[in-house]
């Protein structure tokens, strides 16, 4: 029988909920795993894990239009056809921030004066860290297509896991519910949502759970900083129950999260024993649940 690789993707709806810190703690607690930082817009996991880069690759995606000044007769055809206002009327230069890479101008230019090279959008890396190997990436500044880069780092993480015979992938996912998150959630074994007990945190959680349901990926939820608003924290727990979503636990507000980041440590490397113990118990609950999900998936297949 083919070996099963379990991938847990940690997401948060909104940012700033402590997602990366929690991934860092689980990275320290879990044995034998591949780490993937799929939060490619703001990849922060490396700040905790201090990776030593062993492989570096270019990430290209799609194409972009480039006008060849020598051939261009400034007839204006490209400007009138471009739906994205990407071509400057005075300079006849393509603004790469606006260009969608649709190729309409390239096709219709009467002088064939527009080139259409592949677009370099960022880099991705394989690194060694003190908690195992990690696949991570950096999207170029103001670049697009982060969905594809998310898919790419996840794919590379999976290949690495297969190659090394490792059966767990722990993925730090992007915030939001848009394109990068869709790319991070599709085909995952499960998602863990780190929610915050605020009115916006609850609202975002509902959207994220809708998304995981849409993609048929089982979800688990924990609340960070629950004591900032116990009422909403409990509402979130009840909401999860009503949706039949596994509620892992509540984590209290704790400045250790910030001190750990400031020192480039995971929380487990600090000395707040209560917090460390809580995170260990949470990880145990999560791994038990992951096994349950795997069994359910196997039965369904």
């Amino acid at each position: 029988m083919e070996r099963q690789i379990t991938e847990l993707v940690v997401i948060s709806g909104k940012g700033g909920t402590g997602k990366t810190s929690i991934v860092g703690a689980f990275a320290a607690i879990a044995d034998n795993k591949i780490l993937v930082d799929a939060d490619v817009d703001a990849a922060d996991l490396h700040l905790l894990l201090n990776p030593e880069v062993i492989e570096r690759h270019d990430f290209t995606s799609g194409h972009e239009a480039v006008i060849n000044e020598e051939k261009c007769t400034r007839c204006g055809e490209c400007i009138s056809l471009c739906k994205f206002d990407a071509i400057d009327e005075d300079t006849y230069q393509v603004n790469s921030l606006h260009c969608e890479g649709c190729g309409v101008c390239v096709h219709f230019c009467p002088e064939k004066a527009i080139d259409f090279p592949e677009k370099l959008c960022g880099e991705w890396f394989v690194s060694n860290t003190r908690y195992g190997q990690m696949v991570h990436a950096q999207l170029g500044i103001a670049e697009e297509n982060s969905g594809k880069l998310v898919s790419l780092v996840r794919q590379k993480g999976r290949e690495l896991a297969e190659e090394k015979g490792i059966d767990l992938i722990l993925t730090d996912g992007p915030p939001g519910v848009g394109c990068p998150v869709i790319a991070a959630v599709g085909n995952a074994s499960a998602v863990l949502v780190i929610a915050e007990p605020t009115v916006s945190g609850r609202h975002d959680l509902e959207r994220v759970l809708e998304l995981s349901e849409f993609f048929n990926v089982p979800a688990m939820v924990c609340v960070n900083k629950f004591d900032l608003n116990r009422r909403i924290a409990i509402e979130i727990e009840k909401f999860c129950e009503s949706k039949n979503v596994f509620f892992v636990d509540h984590i209290p507000f704790n400045p250790e999260f910030i001190y750990a980041v400031a020192n480039g440590q995971s929380i487990v490397e600090r000395d707040d024993e209560d917090l460390i113990q809580l995170l260990r118990i949470m990880w145990e609950k999560i791994t038990n649940k992951l096994e349950e999900f795997d069994k359910q998936a196997a039965e369904a297949a």
Partner: peptide
């Protein structure tokens, strides 16, 4: 003849 023809897509996401 050991396979069965699929009647629906096997995955929902187009990013896999």
């Amino acid at each position: 003849g050991e396979y069965k023809i699929a009647s629906a897509p096997s995955v929902r996401s187009h990013w896999s």
